[in-house]
């Protein structure tokens, strides 16, 4: 559960870890039954209505102004979004 919290970037309290572990177990018990009918010959459906080749012409549209871009920023400086120190390495 703690690992899931890290992956999901949610700092879970001890209480939450306890509650969520119980709930997740119960939910997973219930939903695991999908594998009963999901046999290898059944194809997966990722989009309910099949479409393909939906493209956009390579034409420049209207961009956001810098004011619009930064309008909701919790913190900004020099026309950029500002964040606290980054741990670790660049991806």
């Amino acid at each position: 559960m703690r690992h899931l919290g890290v992956l999901a970037r949610i700092k879970l309290t001890d209480d939450e870890v306890t509650t969520l572990t119980g709930q997740l177990d119960a939910i997973v018990d219930n939903i695991a039954k999908v594998s009963e009918v999901a046999t290898p010959e059944v194809p997966a459906t990722s989009h309910p209505i099949p479409l393909s080749n939906v493209f956009r012409p390579d034409e420049v549209g209207q961009t956001l102004t810098l004011e619009q871009t930064l309008h909701n920023a919790p913190d900004a400086a020099d026309g950029r979004f500002r964040v606290t120190a980054i741990l670790g390495e660049e991806q």
Binding site: A8, R9, I10, K11, L12, L20, T84, A85, I86, L87
Partner: peptide, 23 residues
């Protein structure tokens, strides 16, 4: 770190059902 800020923000900003489903 920015990681701490993200985790604390999402802990405070999301309600229990949202957290449950994200997890």
């Amino acid at each position: 770190t920015v990681e701490d800020v993200m985790s604390a923000t999402r802990e405070a900003g999301f309600g229990p059902e949202v957290k449950r489903r994200i997890i």
